[in-house]
């Protein structure tokens, strides 16, 4: 079925592309993305330390743990029953998994805490990369009231350039998540907890 509008937009497509082809400036080569130039490592740089400082600076908390049990202990103390916890990490025996849920993400609205495994962290901005497969439901890290992410300290890379070297196609949705949701739209006063999670706790495993 080809509607009138679709025909019209087909012609817009041709028109736009033709104008662009005609107006494109002469070739300009892509620059090198050599890490030695774009991300030189300062002497004494400590990725974990940097990650920690930056995360605290943007309102997140960091907890260094030795094992899964310590995460369990920390979270169960912080979120006692009857808090609704969705935990996607089987090693932490806490809360519910997503298996029993219907497809409707709206049912996650009352989740107090979501616990998700992150793939790796980035030292320069304390962002953590998570994809749709890590999230169970794509809405989970955004709709929950509080979010806990777990990463290995050894997974922390220096900069975003290093980060993209680690990311490969194979996700349908992915996000770099750095700190709790926030806004400073009212007179530049920083307020944590805009629309997404009000707090972010990052657990660092060795």
């Amino acid at each position: 079925m080809v509607s009138h509008k679709q025909t019209q937009s087909m012609s817009s497509r041709e028109k736009i592309l033709a104008t662009i082809k005609q107006n494109q400036p002469p070739a300009a080569p892509l620059p090198s993305l050599a890490l030695s130039d774009l991300a030189p490592v300062a002497p004494g740089f400590d990725a974990v330390q940097k990650f920690t400082t930056v995360l605290q600076g943007i309102g997140g908390s960091i907890v260094e743990v030795k094992n899964w049990d310590q995460i369990h202990a920390h979270l169960s103390a912080q979120f006692p029953s009857p808090a609704r916890i969705i935990n996607l990490i089987p090693e932490i025996h806490l809360g519910d998994s997503l298996n029993a849920l219907s497809a409707k993400p709206h049912t996650l609205e009352d989740v107090n805490l979501a616990v998700i495994k992150g793939q790796f962290g980035v030292a320069e901005n304390s962002a953590i990369w998570i994809t749709d497969t890590d999230m169970g439901d794509r809405a989970l890290p955004f709709i929950c009231e509080h979010l806990a992410l777990v990463i290995r300290a050894s997974s922390i890379v220096n900069t975003m350039h290093h980060a993209y070297e680690r990311i490969h196609t194979g996700y349908a949705f992915g996000t770099f998540l750095a700190g709790p949701s926030k806004t400073a739209d009212i007179e530049q006063s920083l307020v944590l907890g805009a629309h997404g999670a009000k707090t972010l706790t990052v657990f660092l495993l060795p």
Binding site: A178, G179, K182
Partner: peptide
């Protein structure tokens, strides 16, 4: 933009959710 090291969310939308 704001002096932050990165925005809280930098989301990569590649494929729609099933359905």
């Amino acid at each position: 933009a704001t002096g932050q090291p990165i925005t809280t969310y930098s989301s990569h939308f590649r494929k729609p959710r099933p359905g």
